[in-house]
Every structure is written in C-alpha cells, then in structure tokens.
C-alpha cells in the first residue's frame, strides 16, 4: 500500500487566466489516477487556496451566465463531493474583507459529506510540509 500526498496550492484569482481552473481539474483527476497505478497505490490530494486564490471560493459565481463556462464554484463543490480536502486561508479571506458566509463551505445540495475548512496559513504550510509533491498553480 503506497499513498502519495499531493498538495494543489492555488494563489491565482479566478477567470483572469485558466490557472485556477487547471488546479481544480487536476486535483479532481486524482479520482481516476488509480487506472495508471499498481494495486494498492493511490494519490491523496489536498487543495488549498491562498492569497488571491481565495477569490475562487466566492459563492454565487455567474460565469455560466456571463462567459458560458462552468463556474469554479461548481468545481470546488465537485472536489468536496469527491472527498478532496479543501483548505482556505483564513488570513487571506479576512484580507479581502470576506466573511465565512460569502465562501463556499459545503456542497450539501450535491450530497457531499465533507466541507471546506477555513484555516490559518500555518495549517496550509503543515499540509505542504507533509506532502510528497507540491503543485503550485
């Protein structure tokens, strides 16, 4: 049994570029990585939003109406639905004048069992330190 932990760290704002979307789609791809691995091997993803990246986590995104593309909100909810640990830096949320009720904290309507976690940056650092690989988007 070999599990490798991979931290997907997002510090880019949404929609201005493709970067944060690629972070989410790559993190969610961990759900099917087993097809390329040996029995007992797997990837444990952790998705963390820091800096301007916390803006990806705003609720009520309208990208479907404005740009005709899927919202990053729906991708974050899909990540929660697939039990990916989602961490959001609480210092950066405060820095942008946001409060918890403005942030995507769950995907209950999709049936997700886990919720996002607003955590201090030190917790995100600890996750990075305990990861085998860090993918910085």
């Amino acid at each position: 049994m070999s599990i490798k932990k991979m931290a997907f760290i997002v510090d880019k704002m949404p929609y201005k570029s493709e970067t944060s979307r690629l972070a989410l789609t790559h993190a969610i791809a961990s759900q099917t990585v087993e097809i390329h691995l040996e029995d007992g091997e797997n990837v444990e993803p952790v998705l963390a939003f820091i800096g301007a990246g916390v803006l990806n986590c705003l609720k009520n995104q309208k990208a479907s109406e404005v740009y005709g593309v899927t919202t990053l909100e729906s991708h974050i909810q899909n990540a929660l639905l697939t039990d990916i640990k989602v961490l959001i830096c609480e210092e950066d949320v405060k820095k942008y004048g946001l409060t918890e009720d403005q942030i995507i904290m769950d995907a209950e309507e999709l049936g997700a069992d886990i919720t996002s976690e607003l955590v201090p940056f030190s917790t995100i650092m600890s996750e990075m330190e305990s990861s085998d690989h860090i993918l910085f988007f």
């Binding site: 791809a29 759900q31 990585v33 390329h36 091997e41 990837v43 860090i134 993918l135």
Partner: peptide, 19 residues
C-alpha cells in the same frame, strides 16, 4: 490529467511550472 498525477506519483522530483 490523471496521467500527470500518476507520473508525479512515481517521480523522485516534480517541477510544476505554472501558467
């Protein structure tokens, strides 16, 4: 995209160069 994660899995080092 899962191919990339599998490649990372077996890599000694990963250099992720963002966009």
């Amino acid at each position: 995209m899962d191919w990339y994660l599998a490649s990372c899995f077996s890599a000694d080092r990963v250099l992720h160069i963002g966009g």
